[in-house]
Design a protein around this nucleic acid. Structure first.
Length: 107
DNA sequence: TTGCTGACCGACG
DNA sequence: CCGTCGGCCAGCA
C-alpha cells in the first residue's frame, strides 16, 4: 500500500484536477475531503502550496462568494485575477463573474 | 504536550 | 449593511 498522504497532499491533488477556465471554493474542497466546515484547512494548505514541487493552481480556488480572498498571497496580488482571465474567467473587482457557470465541483 | 494560527463559512444582532 | 463570534482542525514552535 502506498504511503499515507497528508490532507495537504489530498487538497493539492484536488486543486490540480481543476480544469482551465474553472474555479472551485474552499468549502467544496473541504466537503469533498470529508472535512466540511473546516474550509480553513484548505486555505491554510494553500499557504503552503508554494512548498510543493508540483505547481498548484491556487488561483483557481476562491471563496464561497466567488471572491478572490487569497489574492494578497500572490506575487503580485493582481496575478491571481490575471491568471483567471487568461484562462477565460472574467474577474471584476476581485470577484469571479458567472460563478455558478465556471464553478467546478470535485468528484 | 500545549497554545496559537489561519487564502473559510454560517449565524446573530 | 456591518461587525462580531463560534466552529472546524492540521501544522508548527
Amino acid at each position: 500500500m502506498p504511503a499515507e498522504e497528508s490532507f495537504y497532499q489530498k487538497i493539492y491533488e484536488v486543486v490540480r484536477r481543476i480544469p482551465e477556465g474553472k474555479v472551485t471554493s474552499y468549502g467544496a474542497i473541504a466537503e469533498f475531503l470529508g472535512r466540511k466546515g473546516s474550509a480553513r484547512m484548505v486555505g491554510y494548505a494553500m499557504n503552503n502550496s508554494h512548498n510543493q514541487l508540483v505547481p498548484v493552481p491556487a488561483h483557481r480556488v476562491v471563496n464561497r462568494n466567488g471572491l478572490l480572498t487569497g489574492k494578497h498571497h500572490f506575487n503580485p496580488p493582481e496575478l491571481m485575477a490575471q491568471l483567471l482571465e487568461n484562462e477565460g474567467v472574467t474577474v471584476i473587482d476581485d470577484k469571479v463573474q458567472d460563478f455558478n457557470q465556471v464553478f467546478w465541483n470535485p468528484k
